[in-house]
Design a protein around this nucleic acid. Structure first.
Length: 446
RNA sequence: GGAGAGGUGGCAGAGUGGUCGAAUGUACCUGACUCGAAAUCAGGCGUAGGUGCGAGCCUACCGAGGGUUCGAAUCCCUCCCUCUCCGCCA
């Protein structure tokens, strides 16, 4: 969420920045809501102040009556009773208008909240301006695209050839966009996650976490998935007394992990918080019909090792570079060629102020495909979550939040299969994974 | 699933209709005393919002939401969460 104060003070500038990412801010609507809010709020508070003053007076008078009677000052007591009646009548007279305003105010505030909560983050000044993927900026390329002396197969053919990948059965069990791994491939999938977790905890200083895979709506709102992107999520009904509410399946560990600091004030000396989590991720993929239908590139369920950092606002860009590096190291250790791309304004996600994508080389597609996305959200999520720290002056201040995949496990498996395939259909096991696979050096058919 | 007890400021813990945003203790900050520290004494110390150039003034907030009342931390209703015991269970 953007800071409402900034919108009040600098509406045109905010609108201009949002326009670079293709979002047309309805400034007239904002001004109208703001004017309405102001009128109703000031009038409400004025009436509340009057009512409070009268009630307080009644309290004082009521308290005096017993005392006056005790000292035989009956005349004064009677007068005070009259005063009380008069004040009650006066306060009662405020009732109608006040009640009406007190009903209306939260509605107007909610309307403003609804308006604000669907506005995307403003891009950082260093983000290249552009419309689509085509305008992204390549930052660096690491490693050369793998060379083969034979015709390469894609991961589906390789996996099926090794009897380790079975989409037909997955479809029978669940439906399209699910996968089923068996034998050494299932084990390699697990090995990858373990390897990533160990690297980040042992070498990069992240604390391992195990988190809920189902979260409440408040958490989804905190990181920005709700209210705007509900159709991308899987929803699980849940009876809460009379009301039906919902759990949501997490689309990324970013949601539960970042929400750890929702509604909390973190002491300055605890910063930065660095967490890593390995979780499944669930995405409805609504609106992606026909895209990446073959293989395990785009699934309703996939595993991901996620890095999350909660940092001091002055450090967030420095930490983004560091976090990006942590994700890159995994690819380097696995010996996978990749490139780093800085997303342009038009290609960034809703909550991000800056995003780097890491794209891994996929020989069968003869191209680089996204395997990690590392973003700085600045205070956008922190404001929604009320995630704060106490600054040097002892005052609560919003934190900055960052996250990145380190990495998407399913896609990493795809990349390993394709880049490490051999002419006979077998797949070499990358050196760093062998300790996690009982020393296995090669996966052969049978 | 059954029975009970609770949710109040950073923490502990009072408060059961009226000058209560909330006693007291503790933590923290400032000052005094001290060579310095401890102890002691004095003062300060919640969050969000509105309004004003500003000192300030005003509003809301005692788990959440509704209700009663001139007035609710306090009374009523619904829900959520935590703890204890029993049962069941990976």
């Amino acid at each position: 969420m953007l800071d409402i104060q900034t919108l009040r003070n600098d509406l045109a500038a905010v609108a201009a920045r949002l326009a670079t990412r293709g979002y047309a801010l309805d400034t007239a609507k904002f001004e109208q809501l703001e004017a309405e809010r102001k009128t109703i709020q000031t009038r409400t508070q004025e009436l509340q102040a009057k009512r409070n003053a009268l009630s307080k007076q009644i309290g004082v008078l009521a308290g005096s009556i017993a005392r006056l009677n005790a000292t035989e000052e009956h005349e004064q007591a009677d007068f005070n009773i009259l005063q009380i009646e008069q004040s009650k009548a006066e306060a009662g007279a405020l009732g109608d208008e006040l009640k009406q305003l007190e009903t209306k105010l939260p509605l107007v505030l909610q309307e403003m909240e609804a308006f604000l909560s669907v506005i995307p983050n403003t891009p950082h000044s260093t983000v290249p301006v552009g419309k689509s993927e085509a305008d992204n900026l390549e930052v660096r390329k690491v490693g050369e695209p793998t060379k083969f002396s034979f015709e390469v197969k894609d991961h589906v053919s390789i996996g099926e050839g090794l009897n380790g990948l079975d989409f037909d059965t997955a479809t029978k069990i669940a439906g399209a966009r699910f996968s089923l791994l068996k034998g050494p491939l299932a084990r390699m999938h697990r090995a990858l996650a373990q390897f990533m977790l160990d690297t980040h905890t042992e070498q990069h200083g992240y604390t391992e976490t195990y988190v809920p895979y189902l979260v409440n709506a408040e958490s989804m709102r905190g990181t920005g998935q709700l209210p705007k992107f509900e159709e991308d999520l899987f929803k699980v009904p849940r009876q809460m007394g009379e009301k039906e509410e919902h759990f949501y399946l997490i689309p990324t560990a970013e949601v539960p992990v970042t929400n750890m600091v929702r509604d909390t004030i973190t002491p300055l000396e605890k910063l930065p918080l660095k967490y890593v989590a390995h979780t499944p991720c669930f995405r409805s993929e609504a609106g992606s019909y026909g895209r990446d239908t073959r293989g395990m590139i785009r699934q309703h369920q996939f595993d991901k090792v996620e890095l999350v950092q909660i940092v001091h606002p002055e450090k967030s860009y420095e930490m983004l570079e560091e976090l990006l590096g942590h994700a890159e190291i995994i690819l380097q250790k696995l010996g996978l060629p990749y490139r780093v791309v800085k997303l342009c304004t038009g290609d960034m996600g809703f909550s991000a102020a800056t995003t780097y994508d890491i794209e891994v080389w996929l020989p069968a597609q003869n191209t680089y495909r996204e395997i990690s996305s590392c973003s700085n959200f600045e205070a956008f999520q922190a404001r929604r979550m009320q995630a704060r720290f106490r600054n040097a002056q002892g005052k609560p201040e919003l934190l900055h939040t960052l996250n990145g995949s380190g990495l998407a496990v399913g896609r990493t498996l795809v990349a390993v299969l394709e880049n490490y395939q051999q002419a006979d259909g077998s797949v070499k096991v990358p050196e760093v994974l062998r300790p996690y696979m009982g020393g296995m050096a090669i996966i052969c058919a049978n």
